[in-house]
């Protein structure tokens, strides 16, 4: 790893729901090109942290910087434009659209033809649409979904829906890709494939990945660094080896799983 730049800086971020502090004074620094895991028991606040990073919720306190720019309080689409894209724990595809269209929507913000151009079918429209289609197919190929590009997204089997969500997020061309339990519901073989795919994506696209996962095999196998969240607080961070042996982490998980 060469000299790196700070891509994501989470500075004392909190989020309160009613009386519940779902995320509490979280600090997190992620360098350009890292592949980082975020783990923790159910209800620890992992998804909430993602929601804060992507603008779905506004932080109750603290600051978030992406590439040095403050993104706290921006709308989700503005944060996506600044280079963070995500997937969802409970899949949120555009169910009645085709597989291809799902990916094209993510490429929308890179489109240069205006509504006016499209209404009057000026040359820019055809050029822009063709380019989008081409790009979208490229992304589908990576995920082995190009054969199904004209299928309605909601008709795909579960594992493919998960892959499509990642493809879609990637099509937004993010610097930071956030994956919320990408392996959930996948069988062991699919999980291994996914693991390799995630690593490959990072290297191929030179992006940074932060992923939430319950599958320890996947997390330990693929992540270079791991943060552990419990009751909204970061209780440990470090290499997989350090995390595996950290007494706080063991306690958090033992206290949780009976």
């Amino acid at each position: 790893m060469a000299a790196q730049q700070l891509l994501l800086n989470v500075d004392n971020v909190s989020r309160v729901f009613g009386g519940l502090k779902a995320v509490s004074d979280v600090n997190m620094q992620i360098q350009d090109g890292e592949l980082v895991g975020l783990i923790g028991p159910n209800g620890a606040g992992k998804t909430t942290l993602f929601n804060l990073l992507t603008g779905v919720y506004e932080p109750s306190g603290g600051k978030i910087h992406l590439s040095g720019e403050s993104v706290g309080g921006l709308r989700p689409y503005q944060i996506t434009k600044r280079g963070a894209a995500r997937t969802f724990q409970n899949i949120r595809l555009f169910g009645d659209m085709t597989v291809l269209e799902n990916v094209m929507v993510a490429y929308h913000m890179h489109a240069r033809h205006s509504l006016f151009t499209s209404i009057f079918r000026l040359p820019g429209h055809f050029k822009g649409e063709a380019e989008m289609r081409e790009k979208a197919v490229e992304f589908l190929k990576i995920f082995n979904l190009d054969g199904k590009k004209d299928e309605i997204a909601k008709n795909l089997p579960y594992g493919e829906q998960r892959r499509l969500e990642i493809a879609r997020a990637l099509a937004a061309r993010p610097k930071l890709l956030l994956l919320d339990e990408p392996a959930a519901g996948m069988n062991p073989q699919e999980t291994v494939d996914l693991m390799n795919l995630i690593r490959w994506i990072r290297d191929e696209f030179k992006i940074t990945i932060l992923l939430i996962e319950h599958d320890m095999g996947l997390v330990m196998g693929v992540c270079e660094r791991i943060y552990v969240l419990d009751h909204g607080q970061i209780i440990a961070s470090g290499t997989p080896e350090e995390i595996r042996t950290n007494p706080h982490v063991i306690e958090a998980y033992l206290g949780q799983e009976v």
């Binding site: 779905v56 689409y77 929507v105 490429y107 499209s118 079918r121 649409e129 937004a172």
Partner: peptide
């Protein structure tokens, strides 16, 4: 012409899943 363009797809994505649409950069 609107519907069958990236702008129309953006609109449809809002119908399909507003949160995901916004997360994918659709205003």
């Amino acid at each position: 012409n609107i519907v069958k363009s990236t702008h129309g797809r953006a609109m449809i994505s809002v119908r399909e899943n507003e949160i995901a649409a916004e997360a994918m950069g659709v205003n």
